[in-house]
Simulated assay, not measured.
Amino acid sequence: MRKVVLAVVSSVTAGGLATAAWAADDFMSECLVTGSQRLCECMSSKIPADKRAAAVQGMKKSNAATQPGGNLLDPATLSQEQMQGLDAVVIAQASCM
């Protein structure tokens, strides 16, 4: 029984780490559209875990707006979570500059 519990705990822990690594990659991918590696690594370390997914979604919309033919980012098109995520990005960026 103990081996089963340890296997489940190990599996959940590994899955959690894989999810965190995936989120970090998504964050870095979106951040690197407009930022340097050094800046994005610093910002990544400062984004709270509970805001990370929303920050990635907000950055995707922001990055799309900066592409040729893109429209200005209308805050009304962002969910409250995405706005909070972008707020976390701005705060992280300010502390990393």
Rank of each mutant, 00 (worst) to 15 (best):
M1G: 11
L6C: 04
V8I: 15
V8C: 04
V8Y: 04
V8F: 07
V9C: 12
S10N: 08
A14I: 13
A14D: 01
G15I: 04
G16A: 13
T19K: 14
A21K: 11
A21T: 08
W22C: 03
A23V: 05
D25N: 14
D26Y: 02
F27L: 15
F27T: 07
M28A: 10
S29M: 10
E30Q: 14
L32V: 06
V33L: 11
V33A: 13
T34H: 11
Q37H: 10
Q37E: 15
Q37T: 10
R38W: 00
L39T: 13
C40M: 10
E41R: 15
C42E: 05
S44W: 00
S45E: 10
I47A: 05
P48C: 05
D50H: 13
D50P: 00
R52I: 03
A54L: 08
A55N: 05
V56W: 00
Q57L: 12
Q57N: 10
M59D: 01
S62D: 05
P68H: 03
P68D: 06
G69S: 05
G69Q: 07
G70W: 06
G70E: 04
N71K: 14
N71V: 10
L72E: 10
L73D: 02
L73M: 12
D74L: 10
P75W: 02
A76I: 09
A76P: 00
A76N: 09
T77S: 15
T77R: 09
L78P: 00
L78V: 06
M83L: 15
M83V: 09
Q84N: 14
Q84E: 13
L86G: 07
L86V: 04
D87T: 11
A88E: 06
Q93T: 04
Q93C: 07
S95I: 01
C96M: 01
